[in-house]
Amino acid sequence: MTTMIRVENVTKAFTLHNQGGVRLPVFDDVNFSVEAGEALVLAGASGAGKSSLLRILYGNYLPSAGHIHITHAGRPVDIVTAVPRTVLDIRRRTLGFVSQFLRVIPRVSALDIVRDPLLARGISPDQASERAKAMLARLNLPERLWNLAPATFSGGEQQRVNIARSFVDPSAIMLIDEPTASLDAANRDVVVELIAEARAKGSAIVGIFHDEAVREKVATRYLDITAFRKAA
């Protein structure tokens, strides 16, 4: 087994300087590891800090204390102390984040959005287009939308473009935040399949899934982060 993520003594609190300096503790002294091929599902009530933890793993939030060792190019790298260009390199090559929202870039077509990670990893434009189209088709995005920029797409359509982009070439580590929120049952099932396929290829998954049926199909293990709530 290869450990892909090792979380060591991670504590998070937000200090709101412009609201009287109030300090909001989120969790305290979190420790866990995720192996290649595992799907760890974060559990805990709304507000327990599941999304904050996922963002910390991505280097988007900074923990107040502790370390996150990400296995990148065969070596553990602490994403908490890594310099920005190293974090960006980790994200480009090892660490993917799937949110329910697509960050729309003006004028870029759905197909190009999905193709982009393949091109970045050196796959030929023709092959990249073919794989991107196959992925969009699998997620039932109508072909007439492929060459349009998704700014005018519905929430569910944008979400599927985002999922296609994330799973067209799954990263070694995939952080997934509520990917099925506005999808119908058929597309939800496709997402469940895509996660299973990524796992079969060795991806380590950490995710938050609101939908109980999806959660049960995806999870190989649960972590209830309410356990790390600091006793008041």
């Binding site: 300087h17 412009n18 939030y61």
Partner: peptide
Amino acid sequence: QGLTDQVLDDPHHAYTQL
């Protein structure tokens, strides 16, 4: 200072939060 999305999404200094 730091990674752009980290500074914007989890600002630590009072002025950046403002």
